[in-house]
Design a protein around this nucleic acid. Structure first.
Lengths: 200, 200
DNA sequence: GAAAAGAACGAACGATCGTGCTATTCCTTC
DNA sequence: GAAGGAATAGCACGATCGTTCGTTCTTTTC
């Protein structure tokens, strides 16, 4: 093996640490994540945790990646089993709703977007990269729906993607502040109106 | 006077401090605001700044209030001079756009919404209070537009307020990550579609 | 079983955090 | 100009921050 340290142990504990780090970051954001509290949460020493990442920033990047991975696995992957077009698009949104309910206390990806949108550095770049990637996936699903004839031929994919994203932001925002159920009701009705406005 | 300390000096420096604190919080959020860096920014000692508020939390609350006040003065107040109904509603949105451009680096009110939506305490309560208040103002303007006959009689004010708010969230989000101009183009077109969908 | 490698610990570093205290400076009022 | 009170500075505190370093414990390899 070219990676002699791939005994599994290191990777396993790293995964455990990331699990806890992800959960903590859901509440306090990536900026609120401290190595000390993380170590206490995992049940390890600060230096033990630290050694796995080399720096706090590297830890934050790892958490960000883990978040993106989970998001894709939860929201996008199951939807790819649905037929292309509007069904898949609706499945994406439905999964996204569930993602929102599960992480009512806060989504790392969204909170990091507002944490790093005004700064520079690796974290900012990673966030932008991630968000742009997700937006591209959304656009792709939309364009397929147009190709399938489910949406109007003159549909502006980027614009619809923006509108979808905005509604999800509204869901998270209102869900966190005013309660998820009421927010969900609003968002669901808004989505129905949105589909109708773009449908053939 | 029942407030003997109303010489003006205290109030003036407090206002100066709040100016700087507000600017700092726009970048780093309310959680990232520290008394030490704030004091250095203002050109005062830590204890000098501290004495004006008594605690960090009190300072954060003051910044939050200042933000809300400025938002209302920038976005709502000028729009109240426009005739009720759709013109006023559009003016609100237009002013909101300008608010977004001015604070491209981040809006205290929005960032604090995602910072405190999952926690408890006075800051959370204040944020919810503020957001609920603004939503109520939005609803009022919408209901007036319905009463004026500018919007459909069966308009759901809360739902439309949610949709408006979501689009503004999208504008801030995309503006911060991908550049304000492109985000503005998307948001403007989305708003036109939104007005049309509710118009009589 | 000895030796080498890997993983986690424990203590300490300098810095910064929020928050008290006690001086000192500034301003107002007589 | 003196007196008194308000406003700010200075200093110190305990805690926590990210990080470094040397040691110890565990696992693999021969």
């Amino acid at each position: 093996m070219n990676t002699p340290a791939a005994t599994g142990k290191r990777i396993a504990t790293r995964e455990t640490i990331l699990d806890h780090a992800y959960a903590l970051a859901c509440h306090g954001g990536l900026e609120g994540l401290s190595i000390g509290s993380l170590a206490a949460d995992v049940g390890m020493s600060k230096s033990g945790v630290f050694a796995h990442f080399g720096s706090r920033e590297e830890l934050q990047l790892a958490v960000l990646d883990a978040g993106g991975q989970r998001f894709m696995a939860t929201v996008l992957a199951p939807a790819l089993k649905r037929p292309r077009g509007l069904p898949r698009l609706r499945a994406i949104v439905a999964n996204w709703f569930n993602w929102g309910r599960e992480f009512q206390s806060g989504c790392v990806l969204l909170s990091s977007a507002s944490e790093y949108d005004g700064r520079r550095g690796p974290l900012h770049d990673r966030v932008v990269e991630q968000m742009a990637g997700w937006r591209r996936e959304l656009c792709k699903a939309i364009e397929q729906a147009v190709a399938e004839g489910h949406l109007r031929a003159d549909t502006d994919a980027e614009l619809l993607a923006f509108e979808i994203y905005a509604l999800m932001l509204g869901l998270h925002h209102d869900g966190g502040l005013f309660g998820f159920d009421e927010a969900k009701r609003h968002a669901e009705r808004a989505f129905e109106r949105l589909w109708r406005s773009w449908q053939t």
